[in-house]
């Protein structure tokens, strides 16, 4: 699962998995009011029309930012799913900085600061999970999931209480001058992807991460510090997700309102990371693909397709690819 090599069997497996996954997606979608025809038309529209490509690029960056950090964490065997909460927290602090802090910063200062602030608060949230795992042996999957729900309800609390404006439970909107276009957002995601790739392939920490992830005992025997490794990947994955959250707020979310379920970009990041076999560079096309599915799902919301369909389809695709990859070694 952690290998970087590409061979023909893998390619066949991935292709078959994608075909199987998309077929299942069409079948599943056909039970909704949008119907088989609606999903098929929308699928063609998403890839042939220029308009949806802009949406795809806009929604891509939080998914990609979360996923690139997760690839590093997963290679170290730190299975966090906290990216969902970290993205939301990054978005919350960004909204605070530009609208509620009262600082009235110049956009050229506010945008980089909010991206860094989002990253640092995300990293802090990641660090909590890392500390619980390293010093208290608490399972990081459960701890990070619980924190996702905590951040979700904190966000709902802010939107319905302290930050509420007007008669509806919604916060102030990010000012026009602070908003980001898709190209800047994609640029940040690409930079993060290359940094993570560089870290994994060209640095001693990257080597330590890979060794520890594959064989923790061997790593300890050779004098690597497992606590430092886990804490650093917890910080890093939290940082990239937090940056994704800042981009989400400045790029397209713009405000907060109460939600019954999280927006899902962090969970999509988890899926993307698995789909790309934890390779930070493969994450970029994979996030583009998942973002296009999200655009497809959103375009059909008015026709009655629930937005939960998007995550279900993405999860089904990842599972199909995993099954196809596993069977490709056996059957052909």
């Amino acid at each position: 699962m952690l290998a970087l090599k590409v061979d023909s069997k893998q390619v066949v497996g991935v292709t078959l998995g994608l075909v199987l996954g998309l077929t299942l997606a069409l079948i599943l979608g056909s039970i909704s009011p949008a119907g088989f025809r609606g999903i098929l038309d929308s699928l063609v529209w998403v890839y042939t029309n220029p308009v949806p490509h802009v949406f795809t690029l806009t929604l891509l960056s939080p998914i990609a930012c979360a996923a690139v950090g997760l690839t590093v964490a997963y290679r170290a065997g730190f299975i966090t799913v906290g990216s969902e909460g970290q993205i939301l927290l990054g978005a919350i602090v960004t909204l605070w900085l530009v609208e509620y802090s009262g600082l009235n910063l110049n956009p050229q200062v506010a945008i980089p600061i909010s991206i860094l602030l989002g990253g640092f608060t995300g990293a802090l949230l990641g660090l909590i999970v890392g500390v619980l795992r390293v010093y208290f042996n608490v399972n990081e999957i459960l701890a990070s999931l619980m924190l996702n729900y905590v951040i979700l309800y904190v966000s709902n609390h802010l939107a319905s209480g302290p930050w509420r404006v007007g008669p509806f439970a919604i916060t102030r909107s990010v000012g026009e001058e602070y908003r980001l276009g898709p190209l800047v957002m994609v640029f940040v995601a690409v930079v993060l992807a290359f940094l993570c790739w560089f870290l994994l392939t060209r640095s001693s920490l990257g080597l330590a991460i890979k060794v520890y992830g594959r064989a923790p005992r061997v790593a300890e025997t050779y004098g690597l510090n497992p606590k430092a490794i886990v804490l650093s990947v917890a910080l890093l994955s939290g940082f990239t997700s937090g940056v994704g959250g800042a981009l989400m707020m400045l790029g397209f979310q713009h405000s907060l309102s109460p939600m019954s379920v999280s927006p899902g970009y962090g969970y999509m990041g988890v899926l993307v990371s698995w789909l790309s076999s934890n390779n930070p560079l493969v994450v970029l096309p994979a996030s583009w693909f998942f973002s296009s599915i999200l655009v497809l799902g959103r375009s059909l919301q008015a026709s009655g397709l629930p937005i939960g369909y998007v995550l279900a389809v993405q999860a089904v695709i990842v599972l199909s690819v995993m099954i196809a990859r596993r069977l490709s070694g056996r059957w052909w």
Binding site: L28, I31, Y267, P306, G308, A315, L319, R326
Partner: peptide
């Protein structure tokens, strides 16, 4: 198939939530 149990478990968690909304969308 001996796939990773953590990955499959989380995939089922996400799929289940989505399929549930899909079933409910039938009215």
């Amino acid at each position: 198939l001996k796939l990773d149990q953590i990955v499959v478990g989380l995939i089922i968690a996400l799929t289940g939530l989505g399929l549930a909304d899909l079933v409910a969308s039938t009215g």
